[in-house]
Each structure stands twice: as structure tokens, then as C-alpha cells.
Design a protein around this nucleic acid. Sequence first.
DNA 1: TCAGTGATGTCAGTAACTGACATGAACGAT
DNA 2: ATCGTTCATGTCAGTTACTGACATCACTGA
Lengths: 172, 172
Amino acid sequence: MELYLERGFEQTTVADIAERAGLTERTFFRHFVDKREVIFGGQADFQQMFVDAVAGAPDAASPLDAVAAALHVAAAQFEPRRAWSRERQRVIDANPALQERELVKLAAVASAIAAALRERGVNEPAASLAAQSGMTVFRVAFTQWIADDNTREFAKIIDEALAALTNVTSAG
Amino acid sequence: MELYLERGFEQTTVADIAERAGLTERTFFRHFVDKREVIFGGQADFQQMFVDAVAGAPDAASPLDAVAAALHVAAAQFEPRRAWSRERQRVIDANPALQERELVKLAAVASAIAAALRERGVNEPAASLAAQSGMTVFRVAFTQWIADDNTREFAKIIDEALAALTNVTSAG
DNA sequence: TCAGTGATGTCAGTAACTGACATGAACGAT
DNA sequence: ATCGTTCATGTCAGTTACTGACATCACTGA
């Protein structure tokens, strides 16, 4: 991250990273499948957080309610780390290859959420739709939350985005 | 595509492709930014089709109606090419790097649709939410449409997916 | 006929990634 | 205490995607 922020992702070679970490290039590739993965380290926890929250939602909760609950758990986790989130996103936004990988990660989370919903008895395609809609809301809200001029709470932004989604899709 | 189907994407080197096409490797890279782009050739048309359809929807149409109209245009285009769509998707599904690129392409379309919606006077975040929801529906419906056991029309599947989306998001 | 433009070839180089093998520290069993 | 195993790391050689620089040659319009 240091190096990526200093000189950008493309300008940083794996050799550079390895040197900074006091390791060899080969060892780097034993810890990360590729150069881009470095920045997506917390993925497992991130995904599990959503899955647990969906699984733990009240039985009575609708699919979207369960997903909404998960989004709020996520919001609470992120709230104290806005500065860090912004820096990280700046690195990602500066590089297409990283954006590509980010999409994969979000898709993986959506897929895991869909599985968790199916576990709750939700059928397809409702499970996938609810899961992917949830991640869409997350992305849109996250973007607003880290925007320069924003001072509002992540949870609040998520609520509004959810309301906007309901509004957009029910009006159709 | 021939080579990708024969031996798989990873097992096909750019040198192989160039040879088959009667060109040099260097020339290949003058036509495609990278090895993966080969399979996403029609992207510009694909995207434009959505944008035009959204722009051309009746003024009275809600954002989701406009997107739904675009999905139907897309369905009509794809309908006669189911076999081809399946082969292509098989290649993509067999390779993570291609799936990654596919997500980028779909995200680009969603982004273009959002812009077209804004052109129609739709505000954010409604525009992005409607656009991304639309692409979500497209993906889910497309997957069902090319499934082994499916014999139904793409348009019909899209309608059902749209209904399921409305149902899922309004029930929340 | 000639100057310019554009597509292609050639060649050398960088950097991501991989496989094979060697080394050495940690650690449990005897 | 020593031995054998396991695991993380180093070393090295190789492949392949991709890029920049320069040469060639067909085509085109003045």
C-alpha cells in the first residue's frame, strides 16, 4: 500500500514490494496469487461479515431485510475507517486492473450472500437478485460515503440508497 | 475462439493465435489491447444497443421501464444466437481471467445506461441503481436462458426476472 | 512521380508468474 | 539430545504477456 500510494500500482514492481518487505519475489508469490491481491487482503473477513449477518437475521425478515441488516453491519465496521477506505479506493480507482479485481471480489460476496439466502429458504432467482441488489446498494452508498464533501454516516446513506432502490424498482 | 474452444484460454498463447491468423504477435497487440479482449469484440455495439434503447424509450417511461425496454431489445438480438452465446459463455466460465473482464464489460454497460438515464432527467442515485439493477436482471436471465434444460424465450425469462426483482425489493 | 499515411514485420527488452530443487529453522517423537 | 519431518524461504531458470523503436511496403492523393 505504501508503495502503491507513492508511485502508483503499475510503477511498482513485485521486486520493489519484495525488497521493501525484506523478502524475495518468489516468496511474495507464495503469499499472494498475484500482484493485485495484495490490496484485497481482508476479503475473507469482509465476505464472512455479510454471510454471518444474513444468516443471523430474524427468521421473519424478508430477503432484502436480511441483506439490509448485513449492509448495516458492514457500515458499522467501515464507519471508523473512512480515511483508510478513501486511500485504498484512491489506489483502486487509479488503476483499471485493480478495478477489475474489485468487481470480482464484490461479485464473490454477492454470490456468497445469495448462497446464505438460499440457506434461509429463499429461491432463485430471488436470492441472486436480492444479493446482487444489495451489493449494488453497497457500492453506490460506499461511493457517496467516501466522497470529498460527505460528512454523513455510512448507515444513513445506506438507508437512503435502499429506499431509492425500492422506489426505483417498484415504480417500474 | 476456435483455439480457445479447442485447448482453452490459458493453453492458447498469443503466438498460437497470431499464427492461426497469419499474423505476427506484434500485430495482434495492435488490434487488441490484450489477450482477453479477443472474446469481447462486439462490446461497443452491445453497449450502444442498450444506450439507444434507453434513450429511445417514451418520455413517460419510468427509469426501470426504460431499462426494461432496453433489455427486451437485447433479448431480441440474442434470441437467434443461443448456440453461439452458449459456446462463448462456456469459454468465459472456464477461465477466471475472462470472467473478470466480463464483469468489467457489464459494469461499463451499466455505467453507460446510467448516463443515458441521467440524460433523461433521472437523478442519482436512482440512475445508477436502475442501471445496475437492469444489468443484474440481464445476467440472471441470461444465465437461465443459456442453461442446458431451458427452451423458453429470452424475453419471457427477462420479464420474470424483472417481476422477481420488483417483488424482492418491494417486499423489503 | 512523389510525399505522406497506415498497416505490418522485426527485434530487443521488461516484468509477471511458475516449476524444480536446495537450505535451514522449528518442533515433536523417540 | 538427536533425529526426522514439516514448512517457510531462497535460488535459478524458464515461459509468456505486453511494449517501444525502427524498418518496410502497399496504398493514396496531389
